[in-house]
Write a protein that binds this DNA or RNA. Structure first.
Lengths: 231, 231
DNA sequence: CAGATGCTGCCAATTTCCGGCAGCGTCTGT
DNA sequence: ACAGACGCTGCCGGAAATTGGCAGCATCTG
């Protein structure tokens, strides 16, 4: 049996057991040495499988590796398709791809009759105004920086050709019809500022984290701007 | 990239596309020779994946294959949140509600660490131009009529005050930044027509179904308008 | 029919995989 | 506190799988 097949078998094996299973047993069932089994576990973990090894006990696959079958109403499917379609159409490359991947995964666990609904989708996303994308910074990098709660140095053009450099604390990315806005705390102005992504010339994440929690800053921003909290 | 990872990538690549994809393209995306791709396909089929290869066309993954990777990545969660947020913000009442409900169902099955991502969402939907909604027809009714493939009688204003009544075959609803367009076959003009939803004064579903399949009509429409098929 | 695509066999070079050993850390139960 | 069970890592050499290229045939679309 090839290694690739064995790894899939191992996942299924773990899914079958709720209690921890010792590596020894897993290795036996797969017909492989214990050393190889350890390597396989590492590989699977590397692929994102939440396998936990507890010394003295064995391995368990924590819930959340597989998506359970999902049941949706007709409108709900349509809403998801429409929404992910919009992201796939209007977001930057990696995020657009993520939208398609996510939708594909949802479809994969849909009961058959709902799959039909997907193919017969009634709603579509019309082509929008072309996105302003002059400077083309890497938005995926911006997202990672926001998640990491790190400061960043940006070069920003104010629309009349004046460029300035600022150290900011990136908080969120807001999607408008044809621009995206970076919401951040600006160290220069000591206040919240909004930066059009298309006017950011450089975006350089720094190593230093900013000194407050992002959630708290966002809450302040919401209050100051009068933006209601979502959901 | 190890073969094991590549095989999982291949599954997801296939899941993403509904139409057949040629082996050449798959091989390129995976960064591997076509020969190797063929072997990978055989391996996956050996694991029970219902992959069908059609000469002259390409490969399709038929529904019903539930193997990893089937949990959302971080970007995928963000993409779903952003998309459903857009629908919740910009669509009509029932559909907006459906978007929220669907997202809630997804969040409910997420493992704890991904739930955190939801709470700390980095992306948001900015307020858009207010939607044109003069006439306020019931879009939910329009959706049901489209699904039922029934004719409808509409009263339409052309923007200069002239109203006309037409019998149309509603095919789809297209969402633009601040208008929604009903795509339909117009019996009066014997051609496809686009109607701004905000200019439709009355929408009365009829009992009679239209004589062709919606899917076929939509395909014609796509060809005529040069709209590429989604996914 | 031509063109695109799927599919198979063969082969040599390369990569990886594997098992065994040795040793360390961590948790459980006594 | 201790023993035992287990997880985990580094190293090594031989074995096995993987890979890409080539050549050729089959099948479907237009």
């Amino acid at each position: 049996m090839s290694r690739a097949e064995r790894l899939l078998d191992l996942v299924q094996l773990l899914r079958r057991h709720r209690r921890p299973v010792s590596g020894r047993r897993l290795a036996d069932e797969l017909g492989v040495s214990i050393r190889t089994l350890y390597r396989d576990i590492v590989t699977l973990q590397g692929q994102g499988a939440p396998i936990e090894g507890e010394p003295g006990l064995g391995y368990v696959l924590k819930p959340g590796f597989m998506l359970p079958p999902l049941m949706f109403g007709e409108d709900e499917i349509e809403a998801l398709l429409l929404g992910s379609g919009w992201v796939a159409d209007r977001a930057d490359g990696p995020l657009a791809l993520a939208a398609r991947d996510a939708m594909a995964k949802i479809v994969a666990v849909l009961p058959p009759d709902l799959t039909r609904r997907v193919e017969e989708a009634v709603l579509m996303v019309g082509p929008g105004r072309p996105l302003a994308d002059m400077m083309q910074i890497d938005l995926a990098l911006v997202r990672r920086t926001i998640r990491a709660e790190r400061k960043a140095l940006i070069a920003y053009g104010d629309g009349e050709g004046r460029m300035s450099e600022r150290l900011v604390w990136p908080l969120a990315l807001s999607f408008f019809d044809h621009v995206r806005i970076l919401i951040a705390w600006c160290e220069l102005r000591q206040d919240f500022r909004h930066f059009r992504a298309d006017r950011i010339g450089r975006f350089e994440p720094s190593e230093t984290r900013y000194p407050q929690r992002r959630a708290a800053l966002l809450k302040n921003w919401r209050e100051q701007e009068g933006v209601p909290s979502p959901r």
